[in-house]
Design a protein around this nucleic acid. Structure first.
Lengths: 119, 119
DNA sequence: ATAACATTGCAACTCAGTTGCATAAACTTT
DNA sequence: AAAGTTTATGCAACTGAGTTGCAATGTTAT
């Protein structure tokens, strides 16, 4: 099962939600896929993206990714096709936090229209 | 009712979720508060923040805010006190999107420990 | 073959957000 | 002031994502 899920991810260029996954496998239980995603996430094969759409999306991490702040990239949510994309080439800019604020993680999601839908 | 809700917001320095609000008014229906939040948001009195905690938080907009990309500031979610704060003084940095990507909105949420909990 | 462990599926639940409908309150118009 | 219209509130009920417990099935090691 995990191999199949991994295959789906590698063939996909947009991020995937649990229910997206469910629809790719008609006869697999949601819970199985849920747990697969959790396992993958724990092992840093995939990372989760909260794009504000109401469901958490997941996308493959790159080989070197340790999900540290310096590994993070910007995500893009297209309002038209409702897809979320990793902008792997755009790192999340560093932020100067106020004093005594520690940084563990940054999430940056841009909303707009993607190049495909813009035509 | 709306006046009371607005008062809660103005007395609060962290963002508030619907269920936070519910607890501030023991005998007001959740739906009323829900609709109040929606109305406030439409009229740009408050803005919503998706901090990944599972519930949408709201905080007062500043007088001049039109919720345009250039009005946006960074938000901070403290893992310890579970509060979300507007870092009003830290604007969301501009991003160079790939060609043909249009920008409508950016959300930037930093996770870590806030100055209060860091002591 | 048996025991130990891992994976899957079913049912059921939580919790946030949401909608419809009925009632109640507040204005408008005559 | 009475009748009508609009607006606000409350109740019930639902959706959809995410989650948990437990039983059944499959896999691996002894």
């Amino acid at each position: 099962m995990r191999e199949l899920v991994l295959k789906v991810f590698s063939e996909q260029n947009a991020a995937i939600s649990l229910s997206d996954l469910e629809q790719k496998f008609e006869k697999v239980d949601k819970v199985t896929l849920y747990r697969t995603l959790k396992t993958f996430e724990e092992n840093k094969l995939i990372h989760s993206i909260n794009d504000g759409s109401g469901s958490i999306k997941y996308a493959l991490c790159r080989e070197t990714c340790q999900c540290n702040p310096e590994d993070l990239h910007v995500h893009f949510f297209c309002k038209k096709c409702k897809q979320t994309y990793c902008l792997n080439d755009i790192p999340v800019p560093a932020i100067n936090l106020p004093v005594h604020f520690s940084l563990e993680n940054i999430s940056m999601v841009v909303k707009g229209i993607c190049s495909n839908c813009d035509k």
